[in-house]
């Protein structure tokens, strides 16, 4: 995608600046952009270290197991077809919790393992099962308790209060996730009726 879009954006900008008479601006902007990235990256590195460090502690406490039990009734409702398959449910739980804590490098492997165990019990191996659809939608719109990257970037830009956006972010993610789940359930219902 970017292999195609990126060069086009730059070439079009250059051509437009010829028409628009802004060739001097565009020349300066090339070096300004590098300066800006370097400034942002320095602060970003610090904040990312802080959050990844804290999340490593979370990963090693019993917090994860406690949350797994807490989430189970909700996941049973989301995945009615596989709620008795312990292997699949275990991977789905780990995947969901890793998403909630923003542990990107832990959530993807668990998600893929969950897909594999769902494929084992899939009736039509060439088509997504209902549970697979739900799992994918859950992963495209994943809620994060502490949106670490957003906070890190906001503080690297000297925000007055980098955490200001947490509550709005929760709300917008919940609305997105619910929309995704409801539409998925509707698609599943329609294919059943056929």
């Amino acid at each position: 995608m970017l292999n195609f879009l990126w060069p086009i954006l730059i070439i079009i900008s250059f051509l437009f600046s010829l028409i628009n008479g802004s060739i001097e601006n565009i020349n300066n902007s090339i070096f300004e952009s590098i300066d800006k990235v370097i400034n942002i990256t320095i602060t970003l590195a610090g904040t990312m270290c802080l959050w990844c460090g804290l999340m490593e502690i979370v990963k090693n406490t019993s917090l994860i197991n406690k949350l797994k039990r807490l989430l189970r009734p909700f996941l049973n409702w989301l995945f009615p077809e596989v709620k008795n398959d312990e292997e699949a449910m275990e991977n789905i739980s780990i995947n969901t919790i890793a998403n909630i804590f923003g542990l990107g490098n832990a959530s993807t492997p668990a998600g893929i393992k969950a897909m594999e165990s769902l494929q084992k019990i899939n009736n039509d191996k060439k088509s997504l099962s209902n549970s697979m659809m739900t799992l994918i939608v859950l992963n495209t719109a994943s809620i994060e308790i502490i949106p670490t990257t957003v906070i890190a970037i906001r503080s690297s830009l000297n925000s007055q209060n980098p955490t200001d956006i947490i509550v709005p972010l929760w709300i917008s993610t919940i609305v997105g996730t619910l929309t995704g789940i409801i539409v998925t359930k509707l698609i599943i219902k329609r294919s059943k009726n056929k």
């Binding site: 998600g111 893929i112 897909m115 594999e116 769902l118 494929q119 039509d124 191996k125 060439k126 088509s127 997504l128 697979m132 659809m133 799992l135 994918i136 939608v137 992963n139 495209t140 719109a141 917008s172 993610t173 609305v175 997105g176 996730t177 619910l178 929309t179 995704g180 789940i181 539409v183 998925t184 698609i187 294919s191």
Partner: peptide, 24 residues
């Protein structure tokens, strides 16, 4: 996720996924 289990039939998964994006 689809690639990990080599599934081709998406059952229109793109619709709920994009609607979720738009809603948020």
């Amino acid at each position: 996720y689809m690639g990990s289990v080599k599934i081709k039939n998406t059952r229109k998964i793109i619709i709920p996924a994009l609607l979720a994006d738009i809603a948020s």
